[in-house]
């Protein structure tokens, strides 16, 4: 038996909004620790991972591990039927269930909606992400700043270079109409309301596709801050963490490399 109840639908709605433009379908792996998934986009440029830890749920029961193959567009359609303050309960049989049940209940518990989502058999490749990567540079910034930088730059072109030196990050773009760049310095005071922190072991300069950096802005409502981790010649890791360590959405983006 798998049973998981979120107090408010907002949490799962935001997480799905952050991944559904990149992934069409994925296996939601349920274990005693929580709900997680990982999937590549169709061109295999980006790997998206998501975890909702068991503590994110008001009720969480997973008697044995199960994998639910879900079409992201379908689950999003069903979750549109939940008001943001409605609770969401997901129920599935752990013995080869062919559907999962979604129950939405309003705050006064006098309106209860039931939906069934058909599950799919998805044959997906699980990739090994190196743990505790020793990144050359880590930058943390308010997620609203992330959105502004990459929505602005990706309008100019799709080749965005991130260069991080001591205390400064430079984001630049080259496009058909021209080019642009933006420098972001580490904020001086720890009391600053919207801090930018930059940790550099070694300066790094890498190029990434702007279209993806812009797509990741869909995760901005999840988290007040975002962390970007870079190592020369390796994928960029971007993390949006849910409050109270309830989980995260992480993107790993393959770089553009000068051949």
């Amino acid at each position: 038996m798998f049973e998981a109840k979120l107090t408010e639908s907002t949490t799962i709605k935001r997480v799905l909004d952050a991944i559904k433009d990149l992934i069409q379908q994925a296996n939601f792996d349920c274990s005693a620790d929580g709900l997680s998934l990982q999937a590549m986009d169709t061109p295999h440029v980006c790997l998206t991972t998501m975890t909702l830890r068991s503590q994110a749920f008001e009720v969480y029961r997973c008697d044995r591990p199960l994998s639910m193959g879900i079409n992201l567009s379908s689950i999003s359609k069903i979750l549109k039927c939940a008001a943001s303050k409605d609770s969401v309960k997901i129920v599935a049989d752990d013995e080869g269930a062919d559907c999962a049940e979604f129950i939405f209940e309003n705050e006064s518990a006098d309106r209860i909606a039931h939906f069934e989502l058909k599950l799919m058999d998805i044959d997906s490749e699980h990739l090994s992400i190196p743990e505790d990567s020793d990144y050359q540079a880590i930058i943390s910034m308010p997620s609203a700043e992330y959105r502004r930088i990459f929505s602005d730059l990706s309008i100019i072109g799709d080749t965005i270079t991130i260069e991080i030196n001591k205390n400064t990050a430079c984001f630049s773009v080259e496009g058909d109409i021209g080019n642009g760049s933006l420098n972001l310095a580490q904020t001086d005071s720890a009391d600053e309301k919207n801090p930018v922190t930059i940790n550099v072991k070694e300066p790094v300069k890498m190029t990434f596709p702007g279209k993806y950096l812009n797509t990741f802005t869909k995760a901005v409502p999840i988290s007040e801050f975002v962390t970007l981790c870079l190592t020369d010649g390796n994928p960029l890791a971007i993390e949006f963490s849910l409050p109270d360590e309830a989980g995260f959405v992480r993107y790993f983006l393959a770089p553009k490399i000068d051949q």
């Binding site: 590549m40 061109p43 295999h44 440029v45 980006c46 790997l47 490749e125 699980h126 990739l127 090994s128 992400i129 190196p130 080749t159 190029t207 596709p209 390796n234 994928p235 790993f252 983006l253 393959a254 770089p255 553009k256 490399i257 000068d258 051949q259």
Partner: peptide, 14 residues
């Protein structure tokens, strides 16, 4: 020129 790499060139299957 600059070429886009693929994520599965970096992370291998289990």
């Amino acid at each position: 020129g600059v070429q886009q790499t693929r994520i599965d060139e970096f992370f291998k299957p289990h």
